[in-house]
Amino acid sequence: MSEPVALKLTAKDFKSDQEVRWCPGCGDYAILAAVQGFMPELNIPRENIVFVSGIGCSSRFPYYMNTYGMHSIHGRAPAIATGLSVSRPDLSVWVVTGDGDALSIGGNHLIHALRRNVNLKILLFNNRIYGLTKGQYSPTSEVGKITKSTPSGSADAPFNPLSLALGAEATFVARTIDSDRKHLQSVLRAAAEHQGSAFVEIYQNCNIFNDGAFDSLKEPATRDDFLIRLEHGQPITFGSGGQFCVVHPPGGFGLEVRPTADTPAGEIVVHDATVADPAYAFALSRLPGLDLSNTPIGVFRSVARPSYDSVVQEQVAAAKAGVDQTPEQQLSALLGSGDTWTIL
């Protein structure tokens, strides 16, 4: 196989000529710039890249990418993208969605795309609020959150998007943060390389309706003590001086954070994103506290499983092989099969 020709694209090539309209200061701008900056790495012609979104602030994203794009139906981007991906294996298909679009109205489409392992890269911008409709609570808003639609505080237990994705049999699950371009692009890179559904939660600040939701993960004074930066093959330690670590306590089901100084090195969990049992990545997803302490970012899980696309394409190829009838003849034969009769 010959080496692919370098296309020499730049971030500018992926900027459309449309005026970007999000609120000034929105985290979406940073994500857009990071994605546009990453796209040249794919070395895929712009015409073979498609961004599909649903409805919401984040779903305006495709308009600003100079690729093919669909600002589609609320919650249904995974369904539309599934059809596109399965019928066109030559395309790189990306879904952009938000916590409302993906987890409320689109909850079922999301979990079934993940279950099927459709070859999609799904970017979920999670700002834990409804922004486009001006500040109601979302499926990821924390319990007790006071919003316009929960004046006494939210009574709902929120979804943990990564736990949900893992429960839906996702083969690639990752989390990153809007303001950390380097980390965001590293996660995009890993997602792009994955064959099958890649689910990426991006913590995104809505500076109008939920400002500062992730400040503890961003502020220099706190972020090192709050963030667990997952790296495949590395012991999971964190904190400004590496003073915390993650262990699997004997007799327990999950993972726990302990002081590194009190923990024998051999007991510190070494991160392995390829563990077949999703229970490990699930335990990682349950580490954060209500104050976002112990929040892992990076690739939680990356395992190989045949994509829905590849299985369907194999079936279609097998069905076509050895057929000597025209499509019209095959359709006639199909229609005429079974119990048919003629009325004179």
């Binding site: 449309q18 308009y63 600002h71």
Partner: peptide, 13 residues
């Protein structure tokens, strides 16, 4: 999609 030079976006806006 896949047609060079005709990249465009469609949608509800």
């Amino acid at each position: 999609p896949g047609t060079p030079g005709l990249e465009h976006r469609i949608g509800g806006l």
